[in-house]
Amino acid sequence: MLRPDMTPAHFDTLQGDHLPGRFGLKVTAIEEGRLCGELQVQPWMLAPNGFLHAASVILLADSCAGYATIAHLPAGARNFTTIELKSNFLGTARDGRLHCEAVAEHLGRTTQVWSATVRGADDRKVALFRCTQMILA
């Protein structure tokens, strides 16, 4: 079900100056039922308390799951929209690279469900994320 025209370079071009591009998100791998991405933690991504802002983690996980959805749109679909998302935060990072792996849980004709794990540079889990995407025909 993976569309053959979906490559990391495609997503670099697609995101351009949009929010994921401004955060420096890079897609690092795409395969059937899986997409990986990463971003470098910057000081401006931290909350006033000195820890990584939750929105920065969600941006990475949600973008990876969204890009994975685009890469796995069924024939005849024109787009998608997120109808639910949830995050559990298990840790934080103040610097280094965050890595995300989004894995398909369900690839249906009308919905897709993706789980994503975000890890810090030390490979510790920072967050567990899950979203449901509605496929737009």
Rank of each mutant, 00 (worst) to 15 (best):
M1W: 06
D5P: 15
D5T: 15
M6N: 02
T7G: 13
P8G: 08
H10R: 12
F11Y: 05
D12P: 03
T13I: 11
T13Y: 12
Q15A: 00
D17L: 15
H18F: 14
G21S: 08
G24C: 09
V27W: 01
E31D: 10
E32I: 02
R34D: 11
G37Q: 02
L39E: 00
Q40L: 11
Q42R: 14
Q42D: 06
W44N: 04
L46C: 06
N49A: 14
G50M: 05
H53G: 07
A54Y: 07
I58N: 04
L60N: 10
A61M: 02
D62R: 03
S63P: 12
S63Q: 13
A65I: 00
G66A: 03
Y67P: 09
Y67S: 04
A68T: 10
T69F: 03
I70F: 09
A71I: 02
H72G: 03
L73S: 10
P74S: 08
R78A: 07
T81D: 14
T82P: 02
I83T: 06
I83W: 04
L85T: 11
S87A: 14
N88S: 08
F89G: 03
L90E: 11
G91V: 04
L98N: 05
H99Y: 09
H99W: 05
E105F: 08
H106L: 09
H106K: 11
H106D: 13
G108S: 14
R109C: 14
Q112V: 10
Q112K: 05
A116R: 05
T117D: 10
V118H: 09
R119M: 01
A121W: 13
D123S: 11
D123A: 05
V126L: 08
V126P: 08
V126R: 00
A127K: 04
L128S: 15
L128T: 12
Q133L: 07
M134S: 07
M134L: 14
M134T: 02
M134N: 10
L136S: 12
